[in-house]
Design a protein around this nucleic acid. Sequence first.
DNA 1: TCGCGATTGATACTGAGTATCATTCGCGCG
DNA 2: CGCGCGAATGATACTCAGTATCAATCGCGA
Lengths: 141, 141
Amino acid sequence: MVTPGAPPTDTIRATAPRRAVLRLIAAHGDGHFTAADLVADAGHRGVHIGRATIFRTLDLLLEGGFIERIDLPDGEHAYVACRPSHHHHVVCTRCGRSTDVDDGDLRGVTAAVERATGYAIEGHRLELYGRCSACVGAVEA
Amino acid sequence: MVTPGAPPTDTIRATAPRRAVLRLIAAHGDGHFTAADLVADAGHRGVHIGRATIFRTLDLLLEGGFIERIDLPDGEHAYVACRPSHHHHVVCTRCGRSTDVDDGDLRGVTAAVERATGYAIEGHRLELYGRCSACVGAVEA
DNA sequence: TCGCGATTGATACTGAGTATCATTCGCGCG
DNA sequence: CGCGCGAATGATACTCAGTATCAATCGCGA
């Protein structure tokens, strides 16, 4: 899952392409986006960035915790910009906006599961889907 | 995400290839498997089934709730046989075994999130990763 | 300013999943 | 029990995400 091109990276440079990717990501605000979205965005804006570079930058940001990969209900892989600490996402099924939320009571849930199954839970992934406050009353197109 | 070949399906037939796929899935026991795994299994067993048929059968079972798609930590898509009701999975990071668990206190977590974010939660996806009772003490190879 | 090593992007490739379509098969009906 | 029709199959081709390669380029510290 690691895009090559920067094996035993020692220093990380601030390059123009990387800044461009950051800008593209910022343009998505709270919404989620896929690698393909960024490639398309770059095209539409006339910004010339190689596909590989976009993937590499994404990996870099992922590693640094500046973005996180989320799995949409249909199995698609998307990303959202977020703070670099453990948390989860609520993503709006209508507008795509996503908001960070923290573990909350999840600890209790995993504890119950450990007790019930005998597994030693080491990690988890929680994705919540729903309508954000702005889309709650909206009727589908 | 819907594999074609059976558009406005009226009746579902019990065919030999489908039974073969079921058998392949059963062979995985509690473990998870990918579509590619099944294709490979079929090959190894000398069972001749078309790739497309495997994907189609998988979709069918998915639709019927007999298997469920799970997302491994690395983003891979896998499937596990399971009962057709709402629940989640704990998957062992060592042996791949997976066990069904129910929502438990998750309801409380989502309620808290709704209160905190203003989202109307409609669905969720929860994947738990850890060591199953048999693998808890094991040292990695 | 110089040089080294990180970074880039063009290109090619892999592997998952989907589309197409002529052929075959399951199965309910007469 | 044999027919016929529509479901199902599988070979093939294709799309699309993500990865590998590598020569050329650029950032940045000395």
